[in-house]
Every structure is written in structure tokens, then in C-alpha cells.
């Protein structure tokens, strides 16, 4: 029994222990109904975390996810009237395009991803402020229900968000585990120089990873806009930290190469349970930042593969 053998199993063990602790404190927690709504509430965060997983999987980071989601809530709301259902396609493509731009800048111009995504986040924030006129905007309720009502309803007690999350998780899992793209992303995360030497077109796949991240962040924003029936340039603020925490506590290290989207699902559930337990303790969302910041440091320190970092900068 050494620590390296237990490590891959740590995320779900943590989740199980947390669930046991919280349900001992409050037996109502195990009530299926409250659990389902708890899970449904976390879906936009989960989708954003799914995207960030790809960026971290190749050893990069995407700090633009939150601004991207913010921008999409505004874009979707403003364009809903003129574009109808196509607005969803437009938003996701816009997110993917901006993500691809981050990837392009990172790979072609050698700008570290945390800077390029921060910069693209700034661009997205400007677009959001410009389109919204720096106010919050709202959707036409009838049109929203007609076009996107299916996103937030319930069938037989199952929230539709969970179905969406499951479908996206399956698609991401398929890309990661069953396609050439996924294999190459893993190769890049495991060792970029080795991947280059093996003839992998690294730039192309890195751009693809950032495009996936951007597209999923945009989808998260879309779902958020539908849920709130509107948008604002800062409505998704506070999502970035828990999303990154979800990826890292799930077991995808900052150095990339291992973990993946299924780990992120477990990580997101851990974040959800922690959040729920904080509600009992009466700790509000902004104060939770303090706690999640500390968890983030612990999670990075536990998961990071130091053999890949000869010099820690």
C-alpha cells in the first residue's frame, strides 16, 4: 500500500467520505429530491469545468472561461429575438472560435496560456459590456420557453440539466478516450517534446483543446442565461475558481497527462457537496472563495507531477 497506488482513487474516496460526513450532520441531505436539485444547480459549473479539463489535460490553463460565459449570457439574450434557436449554435461557435484564438496565440506566438487566456478574457468582457450597454439584459419569457424551455424542465422528476450534462460528459469522454484527438491530447499532456518527436501535430491539437474549452464555457453561459432568463457582463463571476478546483480535486493535475473528464465529474460533485455543507454553516458564496482557494492549493500540491517540473517558476 503506497501513496502512488491510492492516488488515482483519492477523488471518489474523498467524495464518499464527504457525503457520509454531511449526511451524518443532516440526514435530509440524502433525500433524493434535494440531491437531484443540488446536482442540477451545479450543471453550468460542471460544463465549464469539463472545458477547462481539456486545457489542463494538455498542461495549459484556461482563465477566460468565466468571461466567456459572461459574454455568452449577454450575446444569447441580445440575439435571441433576431436569431431564434440558431443563437445557441452561434454562441457555442463564438466560444470555440475565441478559445481557438487563445490556442493559436499560445502555440504560434509562444505566449503562455495563462496570459493569452487572460487577455482573451479581457476581450470577451469588453464585448459583453458593449453589447449589454453595461446593464443586465433579459430575455423575452415566451420566446425563451418556446425555444429553450426544454433545457430547464423536469421529466419524471429528473431535471433536464442533468440529461444535458450526461450527454456532454459522454461526448467529452468519447473524444478523450475513443478518438485520435484524445490520444494525441494525452500524448501532449504526458510530454510535449516527446509528442513533437513522435510526429504529432502538437499546435493543431492544442488549438483544438482550447477551442473545446471555449465552446463548453460558452455552452455553460448559454445554460446560465436560459436559467436566469437573461444576462449581464458579470453574472457568472465566481465560477472560475470552483471550476478549476473541480478539475484539480477530481485528479487532473496542473501538469496534465492523466485524469480527464470523468475525474472532473467527481471533482464537481465534491465541490457541490462542499458548497451544500457550507450552506448549513451559513457561509455565503464570496466567503467560500477563501476556503476554495485553500483547497485549490492543497489539490495542486497533492496532484502535481513534480518529475515534469525541473524548475518550478
Amino acid at each position: 500500500m503506497n501513496i502512488e497506488r491510492i492516488k488515482p482513487h483519492l477523488p471518489w474516496i474523498t467524495l464518499a467520505i464527504l457525503v457520509v460526513i454531511v449526511s451524518l450532520i443532516d440526514p435530509n441531505f440524502l433525500n433524493p429530491k434535494s440531491m437531484l436539485s443540488l446536482a442540477a444547480d451545479i450543471v453550468p459549473l460542471f460544463i465549464m469545468a469539463l472545458g477547462i479539463t481539456f486545457a489542463i489535460y494538455i498542461g495549459g490553463i484556461d482563465l477566460s472561461a468565466q468571461s466567456m460565459a459572461n459574454m455568452v449570457t449577454v450575446v444569447a439574450t441580445v440575439l435571441l429575438a433576431s436569431m431564434g434557436a440558431w443563437v445557441a449554435v452561434f454562441c457555442v461557435l463564438l466560444g470555440a472560435l475565441l478559445g481557438a484564438f487563445s490556442g493559436f496565440v499560445t502555440t504560434r506566438f509562444f505566449v503562455p496560456s495563462f496570459i493569452s487566456t487572460l487577455a482573451v478574457g479581457g476581450v470577451a468582457f469588453s464585448v459583453a459590456q458593449w453589447l449589454s450597454g453595461q446593464r443586465s439584459v433579459s430575455m423575452d419569457a415566451a420566446q425563451r420557453d418556446a425555444l429553450f424551455g426544454w433545457m430547464i424542465g423536469r421529466t419524471a422528476g429528473i431535471p433536464h440539466e442533468l440529461v444535458i450534462a450526461a450527454v456532454l460528459l459522454f461526448i467529452c469522454w468519447f473524444i478523450e478516450r475513443r478518438t485520435v484527438i484524445g490520444r494525441n491530447l494525452k500524448a501532449i499532456g504526458a510530454g510535449e517534446l516527446a509528442a513533437v518527436a513522435s510526429g504529432v501535430s502538437v499546435s493543431k491539437y492544442k488549438i483544438a483543446a482550447f477551442a473545446l474549452s471555449g465552446g463548453l464555457a460558452a455552452f455553460a453561459g448559454l445554460l446560465f442565461a436560459v436559467k436566469l432568463s437573461g444576462g449581464a457582463p458579470s453574472v457568472a463571476n465566481g465560477f472560475l475558481l470552483p471550476a478549476i478546483v473541480a478539475v484539480l480535486v477530481g485528479g487532473t493535475p496542473l501538469t496534465g497527462g492523466v485524469g480527464g473528464v470523468v475525474n472532473t465529474m467527481i471533482g464537481t460533485l465534491i465541490v457541490a457537496v462542499i458548497r451544500a455543507s457550507m450552506l448549513y454553516l451559513d457561509v455565503n458564496a464570496t466567503q467560500q472563495q477563501m476556503f476554495f482557494g485553500l483547497i485549490l492549493i492543497a489539490a495542486i500540491a497533492l496532484t502535481i507531477d513534480r518529475s515534469k517540473l525541473r524548475i518550478v517558476k
Binding site: 496542473l254 464570496t286 477563501m290 485553500l294 492549493i297 495542486i300 518550478v312
Partner: peptide
């Protein structure tokens, strides 16, 4: 751990 991540996390702690 890389400084951009450790300091980002500490920044969140500060805001909290």
C-alpha cells in the same frame, strides 16, 4: 507548485 496558480489561489483567499 507553479507561482501563477499558488498566487491566484491566495488572491481568492484574500478576497474571501
Amino acid at each position: 507548485i507553479p507561482s501563477f496558480m499558488s498566487s491566484l489561489a491566495m488572491g481568492f483567499v484574500g478576497t474571501g
